[in-house]
Structures are given as C-alpha cells and as structure tokens.
Amino acid sequence: MDRKAFASATGVSRETLDAYQLWQDTLVRWSEHTNLVSRHTLDQFWERHAYDSWRLAELIPHDRHRMVDLGSGAGFPAIALALAFRDRGQDCPITMVDSVGKKVTFLREVIRALDLQADARSVRVETLDPAEGYDLVTARAFAPLNKLLGFAAPLLKNGAIGVFPKGRMYEDELTEARKNWTFDVEVIPSQTGDGVVLKLAQVRRCSSKGTNR
C-alpha cells in the first residue's frame, strides 16, 4: 500500500492525507538516529502502521470524549486516530504515554507540527490518574493482555472501553487473562493481517476463580 492506495481505502481529505505524509516524513528523518520502529517496517508505513491504526477508528463509537494510549512509541495508533477523529469531526483529545523520553519528544514534535488535539507524557502508565476521566483506552504491542489489563483496569471504568490490536496468539492471551480478570470482549478480525482487535468493556479483577462472561 502506498499513499494513493491509502487515500482510496480511507477516503480521507487531502489535508488529512498530507498530515499522514508529514508524520511519515518525520518518522523517516528521526529513524536515522533514533529507534522508533523496526527499520524494515518503515517501507510499510502506509499499510502496517497508518492504515492498520486508522482502521481502529471504525470500531470506536462517536461518543468517546477522552482517550489515552499506553506505550505510544512512534504514535501507533494514537496519531493515526487523532487524524481520523479530526477528519470525521469527532472531539476526542488524546493523551499519549511512553516512559522513553526520546519517543515522547518525537510525539510532541508531530503533535505540534500537525496541530493535533493531543498531548504526550513521559511517565509510567501506572501513574495515570483515573480521575482524568478517560473513556477510551488503546495500546498496540505494549504488553500481553493479562499484564496490559493490570495497567488499564483502573482506567476502564464508568463505561470506558479498551481497543487493543493483538496478533495471532490472541486466544492464548485471552485464556491467560481470564484467570485473573472478567470482561466483556468482542473479537474483531483484522483486515490488514492475521491478527485481531479486542474490544473490551466491564473489566474487573476476579474476586474468585471463575469464567469470563
């Protein structure tokens, strides 16, 4: 997939397409001195990174008003979603979190250059305050689901949902997570690979051993 194919597949505006292009150009420039993504995936930006992340927007209700992305790295999916939300007129500020300072510096440069409704924080995810009222939590390649929920569960309350892309071993991750957590889950096949997207709600730590609903 290239820029033209991405535009055809998503139907985004020319302004949004140019913003994705600027993001890619910045990523390539930074990757000359900073390890943000695997170098062999840079040539797959439009499909593996931009489109794969953009597709998540179709799974997110329009009534989400504040999002946090855990382990944001180079901005997948957070920057892609910020652009998708703006393109469809959705007001949903995004907080991007990463403990690696250089990655946060990169994110801040892109946020500023693209004038996104977002901020980037160099903090550990466990320090996030649930009182900030996030109603959407995302994470891509951050941690196995069982561990991820340990970080995300305090944020997944009061109607909040989690949207987590996962690879082909997602069933093993679900099995392991169900030993410690109960949750409602929708498993959505990925249209860009052999993985899935897990859409979670009603996440609670198990009070005793049992099975998930």
Rank of each mutant, 00 (worst) to 15 (best):
189 P>F: 11
99 S>A: 07
49 H>A: 04
181 W>F: 11
210 G>Q: 14
50 A>F: 03
151 F>W: 10
68 V>E: 02
65 H>A: 14
195 G>D: 13
1 M>A: 08
97 V>A: 06
78 A>V: 03
62 H>Y: 12
28 V>Y: 13
76 F>Q: 05
94 I>D: 08
182 T>W: 09
184 D>V: 06
164 F>L: 12
153 A>Q: 03
52 D>I: 05
144 P>S: 13
81 L>N: 04
10 T>K: 03
196 V>K: 00
106 F>M: 03
53 S>E: 09
162 G>N: 00
131 A>Q: 08
154 P>K: 06
87 D>S: 04
165 P>F: 09
22 L>N: 12
183 F>Y: 10
168 R>S: 12
157 K>W: 10
34 T>C: 06
15 E>T: 15
56 L>N: 01
57 A>S: 11
82 A>N: 03
112 R>Y: 15
92 C>R: 12
74 A>R: 11
40 H>F: 14
54 W>V: 10
168 R>N: 05
124 R>I: 05
78 A>K: 00
192 T>G: 04
139 A>D: 02
96 M>Y: 13
75 G>E: 09
98 D>H: 02
14 R>I: 02
210 G>T: 14
62 H>N: 14
41 T>K: 13
99 S>Y: 02
172 D>H: 13
188 I>D: 00
166 K>T: 11
4 K>F: 13
16 T>C: 14
113 A>E: 15
21 Q>Y: 15
148 L>M: 07
